[in-house]
Design a protein around this nucleic acid. Structure first.
Length: 259
DNA sequence: ATGGTCGGTCTCCGA
């Protein structure tokens, strides 16, 4: 079973590049972030036509997440628990059915800039809520994967120029600590497990020739529960997508689990 | 040190 995450930075802008990547990569399940669309504005027919079940959690203009799946989805839930006043569409989860089901949690973690400030406070509170959700899921002992745009650079080796990020919400100690707390609950950073060492990125800014200079950062992650990690077979980062026509600033990142 | 680019609610804001 191939599970992918892809921050597409607007579904309307990616209406050609996303189906092209799906045709090539043939993932079974894709969690999308920044669809920047209402549920009713999402072009679900395009993806249904490619054989995907489509579940969206949209919002006007900003944020918005979705799950596309070739396998049946059940128990679809929208929104991260823990704050009924939170109106930002950043979390969607569902169980992928099959002989060996797995729960997927698609997430778009808040950017948090500028820090310090209310946006950074929201980011850290959101991460604490996410940790709570992970604790509940771990207690169930069901296999699950939390995949998406975490907006966290875990370590210096995850940035081409870590010195450029020292005051940024993506790299501040509290952000990295909150990410580490999730790992320390027993989750596996799938990419890091298979590709130790520097130079592995998932995002290159549109500005200042970041792609041409390979000035990237690794902020899109797939964290596996212990029962999902048992089934880890292969990981990948579809870096070439960044060099394609009208690219997102992120690229797809994926994991293959034993069926 | 500065300026640089995308997307969408489009001459502003978020990233």
């Amino acid at each position: 079973m191939k599970l992918a995450t892809f921050n597409i930075n607007g579904i309307k802008a990616r209406i050609e590049a996303l189906p092209a990547w799906l045709d090539n990569a043939k993932p079974d399940v894709v969690c999308l972030q920044e669809i920047k669309s209402l549920d009713e504005g999402f072009p679900r027919e395009v993806f249904e036509g490619l054989g995907y079940q489509v579940e969206t959690h949209g919002q006007k203009g900003f944020n918005g997440v979705a799950i596309l799946s070739k396998l049946a989805l059940s128990d679809v839930r929208r929104g991260l628990p823990g704050d009924d006043t939170d109106e930002q569409a950043r979390w969607i989860e569902a169980v992928v059915d099959g002989p060996r089901p797995v729960r997927v949690c698609g997430l778009y973690l808040p950017n948090g800039n500028p820090a310090p400030g209310p946006k950074y406070d929201y980011k850290l509170a959101w991460m604490t809520r996410m940790e709570g959700r992970i604790r509940d899921l771990l207690a169930s002992e069901e296999p699950f994967v939390c995949l998406g745009d975490y907006n966290v650079i875990p370590q210096a080796m995850d940035a081409a120029k870590p010195e450029n990020w020292v005051t940024d919400a993506l790299y501040l100690p509290q952000s990295r600590e909150a990410f580490r707390r999730m790992l320390n609950l027993g989750l596996t950073d799938a990419i890091r497990a298979r590709q130790p060492g520097p130079g592995i990125y998932t995002f290159w800014d549109y500005q200042a020739g970041a792609w041409e200079r390979n000035n990237g950062i690794r902020i899109d992650h797939l964290l596996l529960s212990p029962q999902a990690a048992d089934r880890l077979e292969e990981t990948g980062i579809d870096k070439a997508v960044r060099g394609g026509d009208k690219p997102s600033d992120h690229v797809p990142v994926w994991v293959r689990l034993a069926a």
